[in-house]
């Protein structure tokens, strides 16, 4: 996982498998940066994710809560079709911008 920061925009490049087990350390690291930066925009890039279950949805929802509390927005981008399908099941598009791989803003 890599985090890049430009001004008040924070981008997290997620990789590997996201399940209930792996989500905990990912969450901890992202939340540390959110606390420091108070970003206006948090972009979660799922391009490098090889497996994800509904824990990935929880990851986006939880970050939405902390970022929106400071008036920021959350986007989940570069979603492979299958991850996009899981995100849509939750109605997540109502609170976060969702973009499939190759889709432009």
């Amino acid at each position: 996982m890599e985090i890049s920061i430009q001004g008040k925009c924070m981008t997290v490049f997620l990789d590997g498998e996201i399940d209930h087990h792996t989500a905990a350390p990912i969450r901890k690291q992202i939340d540390g940066e959110i606390d420091r930066l108070k970003p206006k925009l948090l972009v979660l890039d799922f391009g490098g994710v090889t497996f994800m279950d509904s824990s990935g949805v929880g990851l986006v929802m939880g970050r939405y809560r902390s970022v929106s509390a400071c008036g920021g927005k959350v986007e989940a981008v570069n979603l492979p079709p299958r991850l996009y399908q899981i995100m849509k099941l939750s109605g997540l598009e109502k609170i976060a911008g969702l973009r499939m791989a190759g889709e432009r803003p």
Partner: peptide
């Protein structure tokens, strides 16, 4: 869907998935 019983980090989507 969306019933987690725990709130917080669980999306409550297990059975829907």
């Amino acid at each position: 869907p969306l019933y987690s019983g725990l709130g917080g980090e669980r999306a409550g989507l297990g059975f829907a998935v």
